Amino acid sequence: MLKIFTTQLTGIFNRIQEGEAQSIEDGARLLAQAVISDHSVYVYGKNELEGILKEAMYSSEPFPSVKVLPKNEENWPDFEMTDKVLMFCAGSADDEELKMAEKLYERGIGLVVVSPSGKDGAPIASFADVHIDSKLRMPLLPDEDGTRFGFPSLMVSLYIYHALSFTLKEILQEYQ
C-alpha cells in the first residue's frame, strides 16, 4: 500500500510541477507585491489545511509578512490595497469559501487560491487573480470494495505552499 501511495503522490507532485509552474510563479509575484510594500499576506485554510497556517507562521522559515485571515468577515482587518490573500481549499471550494473569495474580490484584494479543478474547472477561480490547481481530485488508494481512501490534501497543499515560498524568496532576492 505504501508503494502505491508514494507512486500516486509523486504523480500528483509531478503534475503540479509540470502544469502549475507558471501559476505558482504568478502567485508568488502577486504575493511579493505585498511583501515588498511592507503590507500583509493573509493566509487562509480550514480544517486540515489549518496546518498551512502553522507552517507559514511558526516554521523555521516563516512566510514573509504573513498573518492569518479570520474565517468570519466581521473579524477581517481593514485591508490595504496592497495586502494579498493566499487561500487553500481541500475541495473545489465550498459555499463558505466561495462567498469569502467573492467578498475579497469585491473589495479588490489580490487573491491567490489553491484548490483542485474539477471537470468544469474551479468555480472559485473566477474570483482569484491566480488559481493554482492542486490536482488532488479524489482519494489516491483503491480499497478492496472499489471505494477509494487516502486524500492527502495537507501534504499536497504544503508542496504548493513551499513552491510559492521558494519562488517568492527568489523574487525578493532579485528585487534587492
Rank of each mutant, 00 (worst) to 15 (best):
P70R: 01
V113R: 05
E102S: 14
E144Y: 12
G11Y: 06
D129W: 00
N75W: 06
P142C: 11
D95N: 13
M155F: 07
Q33G: 14
H131P: 10
L141N: 12
L104G: 05
E106A: 13
F13K: 03
V114W: 07
P62R: 09
A125E: 04
S134P: 02
D78V: 11
R137E: 12
F127C: 13
K103R: 15
G121Y: 01
S126A: 10
K99F: 06
V85Y: 00
G45S: 04
D26E: 14
K135W: 04
S126H: 08
G150R: 11
I124D: 00
H39I: 07
E55L: 10
G11C: 06
E20F: 09
L53T: 08
A21I: 06
A34N: 04
K67P: 05
L140M: 09
R137K: 14
D78S: 12
F79Y: 03
S59N: 05
L104Q: 05
R29F: 08
G150C: 12
E25H: 14
R29I: 03
A56E: 08
E106F: 07
D83W: 02
P70T: 02
V114P: 02
V41N: 08
S126Q: 15
A28S: 14
A93F: 03
K119V: 15
S117F: 06
M100W: 01
M81P: 10
P62T: 10
Y105I: 00
L31D: 00
D78L: 13
Y44Q: 06
G108N: 03
L111K: 02
G19C: 14
V113N: 04
V66T: 06
P77W: 01
L136E: 01
I124Q: 04
Y44W: 11
V113Y: 02
E102M: 13
N75Y: 13
D94V: 15
K46Y: 08
S92P: 06
G51H: 12
P62L: 10
Y44M: 06
N72P: 01
S60Q: 09
H131Q: 14
I109Y: 00
G108K: 00
A125N: 06
S65P: 03
A28H: 04
M100V: 04
D145N: 15
A32F: 02
R29P: 00
A90W: 05
V68A: 02
R15A: 10
P142I: 03
D143H: 14
D38L: 07
R15H: 07
L69D: 03
P77A: 11
E50F: 10
V68N: 00
V68E: 07
G51C: 10
L141A: 09
K99L: 12
G91K: 09
D133F: 15
S153T: 15
E50M: 14
K46H: 14
L98E: 00
K71N: 07
